[in-house]
Amino acid sequence: MRVGVVTFPGSLDDVDAQRAVRIGGHEAVALWHGDHDLRGVDAVVLPGGFSYGDYLRCGAISRFSPVMTEVIAAAERGMPVLGICNGFQILCESHLLPGALIRNDHRTFVCRDQRLRVENASTAWTSAYDEGAEITIALKNGEGGYVADAATLDRLEGEGLVVARYLEHNPNGSMRDIAGVTNERGNVVGLMPHPEHSVEALTGTGTDGLGFFTSLAALAGATFA
Rank of each mutant, 00 (worst) to 15 (best):
M1A: 14
T152F: 00
D35N: 14
G173D: 01
H197L: 14
D14L: 10
R77F: 13
G25E: 10
L167T: 07
G221C: 13
T126W: 04
F50M: 06
G160C: 06
V188D: 02
R19A: 12
A74R: 13
A151K: 08
A73C: 11
A218V: 14
P171Q: 06
T136W: 05
Y55P: 00
F8S: 02
E184T: 11
R185P: 00
V6N: 05
C85K: 07
A30V: 06
G173E: 01
Y166C: 03
V44D: 03
Q18F: 04
A128E: 10
A124C: 13
L12F: 09
A75M: 06
C58H: 04
L12I: 09
Y146Q: 03
R39G: 11
G87T: 07
N120H: 05
A179M: 07
G158C: 00
A217N: 13
L82P: 01
S215W: 07
M1K: 10
W125S: 01
G209C: 13
N86I: 05
A100Q: 07
R22I: 12
A75K: 04
L56P: 00
H36W: 13
D37Y: 08
E159T: 01
R19Y: 14
D42K: 11
G78S: 07
V162D: 00
P9V: 09
H106C: 04
P80D: 07
E184D: 11
V41S: 07
T136E: 15
L161R: 06
E27V: 12
G78E: 05
R2Q: 15
L38K: 02
A164L: 12
L38C: 06
V21R: 02
